[in-house]
């Protein structure tokens, strides 16, 4: 889909330098360039301070651009009012209107966008139901838990039917269950045609949700592709770790011949040996057979999938999270 799809966000050398004082500057985003296709879930994956929020800030008119250009549905992001009509943002931080109830947060938001009364009432009804907040619609949002606030902010964002939905670290700080629930909602929305640009520092989240991912660090895009292709960039790829009490030479020979890459490493420990073999789960039957042929005991067999974390380590030498 990536090849022929129509780009809805076009970023051309976007740059942001924050001025702290006259001689201290932070180059938060250093001239990034990519586009997001209509109907896509696009992810910005990177550690804290990578420049994800700043990038979203520029695209959503909240951060003044230092240099470069970006277009949303063909409209320059400097044309603030026109861009604001097309987009919606769910920020990293709860910014619900605490003077209003959950339902009013939705209806007033729609009112700001000139959505007619009947339409906004109906839409609020639907979205409250979809986000599982129907029972709490008349409560003030002060007492809402993180997960509820997050779902209400998504509902609010959808009230004016934006062309692009921006989600900034939507699941950070949520418990695993709320996180799963939110993932389901994001997928559901996307299936109904919603273009979504999200940021995250969870590699599993990016992997699971996004059609394409830009890996971003220190304000630069290091790699951009589908999760599948990104993981193929990691040298070695998937591997199987075989834990044995001892490793007879004949077994090592057989394993070496099992695939063109063969055994990649052998680690001898006090009472065991760990052999790593290149490849995925398809190799497991062959490995077991070889082990049985050589009458060796197995302590454990572990399939190790390449993750985006591995790619990040490969690209930067650091882990995604601290």
């Amino acid at each position: 889909m990536a090849e022929q799809a129509e780009a809805i966000i076009d970023i051309e050398g976007l740059k942001k330098t924050y001025t702290l004082d006259s001689h201290r500057h932070v180059e938060a985003v250093k001239g990034i360039k990519f586009s997001v296709n209509a109907g896509e879930i696009f992810g910005l994956l990177g550690p804290n301070g990578a420049g994800k929020t700043t990038t979203i800030g520029m695209l959503t008119t909240r951060v003044k651009v230092t240099a470069g250009d970006a277009f949303i549905a063909g409209i320059n992001i400097r044309d603030e009012v026109a861009v604001k009509r097309l987009i919606a943002v769910v920020p990293q931080q709860n910014n619900l209107d605490r003077s209003l109830t959950a339902r009013e947060n939705l209806t007033f938001h729609a009112k700001y966008f000139g959505v007619p009364k009947q339409v906004r009432e109906k839409k609020a009804e639907e979205l409250l139901k979809m986000m599982g907040l129907k029972g709490r619609q008349d409560d003030y949002v002060r007492a809402f838990s993180g997960g509820m606030a997050q779902r209400l902010m998504i509902a609010r964002a959808l009230m004016h039917e934006p062309k692009v939905l921006f989600l900034d670290e939507a699941t950070t700080g949520l418990d695993p269950q709320s996180r799963r629930l939110l993932w389901d909602k994001v997928r559901e929305l996307n299936e109904s045609g919603q273009t979504i640009l999200l940021t995250t520092h969870y590699m599993d989240e990016a992997d699971e949700l996004c059609h394409r991912i830009a890996i971003i660090d220190h304000g630069e895009v290091l790699a951009l592709d589908t999760p599948h292709n990104l993981k193929r960039m990691v040298p070695g790829g998937n591997r199987i770790d075989l834990e044995l009490p001892e490793a007879p030479d004949r077994l090592v020979d057989i394993l070496r011949g099992i695939d063109r890459t063969g055994v990649i490493s052998r680690r001898d420990e006090e009472d065991r040996v760990i052999l790593s073999v290149h490849g995925g789960q398809g190799l497991i039957p062959g490995i077991i057979k070889a082990v049985q042929e050589t009458n060796t005991d197995i302590l454990s067999v572990q399939l190790h999938h390449v993750t985006l974390e591995d790619l990040f380590i490969h690209l930067t030498g650091r882990r995604l999270r601290d």
Binding site: K84, P91, N94, N95, D97, S99, Y112, G114
Partner: peptide, 15 residues
Amino acid sequence: AIKEIEDRLMAPIRI
């Protein structure tokens, strides 16, 4: 700290 006004700043109107 909460930046409650953000939703109104995102309304389609000049600041």
